[in-house]
Amino acid sequence: MPARGKPGALLRAALAAISLIAAFAVVAEDYIGRDEFLSLAFGDASPEMHTLWLTRETRADAEAAVGWIPPALRLRYWRSGERTAWILEDIGKEKPITLGIAVAGNRIERVEVMAFRESRGWEIRYPFFTSQFSGLSLASDGYLSDSIDGITGATLSVRAVERVARLALWLDAQVEG
């Protein structure tokens, strides 16, 4: 009777799938939209949107400098004066986290979690965590100029924010340079 064991496994698979969908439905959240982020980043100034094409060389440079680069061939950023703002995504554990990062004078001014889709680690959206990035720059080794205090249970999300922050600083340097 080999088929006897199968319903149990299938039941578990079905329940796991349904739980996963339910979990996703519950936790997927958009906190702020593009316009709200740009307003936070630039205040009353009106930033212009620009496009940065990621050539093969640029991608290789980013990989060497900060260790990763999104798969898309072009990225959008907004600029007003020396301030730039970037909307970037990285995977925490399984789902992408959307982050808005404002950079001025080679230093991070603001980090905002715009959308969070993972089931755990949403605590990264709060200022007690994001404010740690303010004033940080990119060190010569490709890491941030100061360490970031993590959050228990949100290690992967914290790492994702650090990666994106490093990339935003590197990208800002490219468009500044």
């Binding site: 939209g33 593009r34 316009d35 898309a72 995504e89 959307t98 808005g100 959308a115």
Partner: peptide, 16 residues
């Protein structure tokens, strides 16, 4: 998507 299958850009609610 580019004709070669490369992703040019992913537009989401966060980018409008």
């Amino acid at each position: 998507i580019a004709p070669g299958g490369e992703l040019i850009e992913a537009v989401t609610a966060s980018t409008g």
